[in-house]
Amino acid sequence: MKEKVITSNKLSRKFGDFVAVDEVTFEVSKGEIFGFLGANGAGKTTAMRMLCGLLAPSSGSATVAGYDVSTQPEMVKKNIGYMSQKFSMYEDLTVKENFLFYGGVYGLKRKAIIERLSMMLGLLNLSHVMNSLVGSLPLGWKQKLSFSLAMLHQPGIIFLDEPTGGVDPITRRQFWDLIYEAAYDGITIFVTTHYMDEAEYCDRVSIMVDGSIKALDSPENLRKTYNAASMDGVFQELARGTSTK
């Protein structure tokens, strides 16, 4: 049995009377690509925020990288990388300056940051943008750089919140190449997406409906269980009728 790096046990969150996340239980193994799907408003973002230590659970518990999200959120944050769907680099700073800033936030040494940045840019074939203003780069490049930024402090787990929205199909795949590579190196990937073909690339997929996880399995098994030709079919089957909420 592989090491579990994320465990969620009846994790719940209420906002007033509204139950956004309802007793969600699951585990993610080290090096796994875990797809976290759900309709708009199904509670994905809330669950993800709790796992990242940004929001305290109302009840239940979860550990990420061995730390409890409600009692040790600071340790959780130190050990994870996070890339939000909103682009999070400063447009008026250069790539290098952005990395130095975020590296500094995580307490990394300047020399170590620059070494790692050069290495990562080399892998992305983007070495030439080191000193370019982020605002001047195409969206696809920014997205890849954001991913590298989330990886800067070498976290064991990365949370990606809709990382590929609006990019062209080639860039989207190049982005997934990065995810595969990271997972191959033993990094755990926790990703949300609205592209159902991307769900197929995950080792396991959970589908959230109305705050709880309705299905959790490998894409292959899910397709079999729900007798669907693709993950899109599975999703339509499970989430039908909930989009009107």
């Binding site: 759900g38 309709a39 769907q85 929205g165 609006g166 609205h194 339509q236 989430a239 039908r240 909930t242």
Partner: peptide
């Protein structure tokens, strides 16, 4: 854009 697959289909 940014809408889930079910709503998109509808």
């Amino acid at each position: 854009t940014g809408v889930d697959p079910v709503s998109r289909k509808e």
